[in-house]
Design a protein around this nucleic acid. Sequence first.
DNA 1: GTCTATATGGCGATAGAC
DNA 2: GTCTATCGCCATATAGAC
Lengths: 176, 176
Amino acid sequence: MFAKKGFSSVSMRHLSKAVNMSPAAIYHYFPDKNTLYLETVKYAFADKEEAFSVVWQDNHSAKTKLVLFVTSLIQELTLDPMFHTLILREVVDANPERMKMLANDIFKEQFCFLLSVMKEIAPEKDEHLSAISVLSLCKHHLEMQPLRQHLPGWKHEHEQPDVLAKHVIELLLKGL
Amino acid sequence: MFAKKGFSSVSMRHLSKAVNMSPAAIYHYFPDKNTLYLETVKYAFADKEEAFSVVWQDNHSAKTKLVLFVTSLIQELTLDPMFHTLILREVVDANPERMKMLANDIFKEQFCFLLSVMKEIAPEKDEHLSAISVLSLCKHHLEMQPLRQHLPGWKHEHEQPDVLAKHVIELLLKGL
DNA sequence: GTCTATATGGCGATAGAC
DNA sequence: GTCTATCGCCATATAGAC
């Protein structure tokens, strides 16, 4: 509900109805709405690391790692759009403390793996910008879906994870 | 205020204070809060086409058009972050009617120019996906700024429009 | 641990004076 | 065209019974 409608558009009354409780009962488990929201975000992001554990195995070449990462990320974001929307809401709201927490506790480890792959594949490029570019290509196609489906040239197949992944990987490796 | 805090976190009382009016006075100009918001969005997006009129001039080669477009877009988004945040909020909220309006009335024309450039530069690729990829690389670096400044490898210079534009253009033309 | 009842205050919107 | 006053509603949060 937070991902779909945003923090202030979801009331304790709505939440309580969704779990068949009175609003007051929720306050037995959480001191206030803000804490409840924070716990929700942490919970939603907590188990995402596992999905990528296969990607960074040592016996893979850098290029294979990149291909696997792009594929896995697009897959994960497609299968769990709520996860994706929640990230987006967090970034738009941009609470500095929460940003720091997200960066350090949730994304840092995966980002470091990606950085080291970038260093190997494109040593002459700035690896931070390269890594962010990889993320942007994966994330943005899905993020813009509500808008781009109304733009010229859109096809149904553009929403398929494997079609998207193929496009992104080719673009990254060879350019336009 | 809508860009910064979102529709439901900005009250008519807040708005009225910001313009030194009583809440009731605003209702003389707008029938309700929703209409006021829509007018705000239209106003914020209305004059953005002009910024790109130079880009699509016929005497430019396709490659030059791409370079100019990337440079202009990153410039525009950096100079007017409110514009950028407002797009993002619209996409996250994803009201179907408003998406259609935005696509047809605001973005379509520019997107078509970009599509035709993509067709010329990368004829064997899907031009819709290519065009969205260009947008994603420009937009996402700025969008992620609050988060990525806490991620490893970040430097101050990564926020400079020309550094970003150079990176994006090289990536698009040659790959990693 | 869950409920009903309620305190307290902000919300969008309107009525009607000036 | 702007104001004060207010309606009716919903918000977060708490008190206290069971």
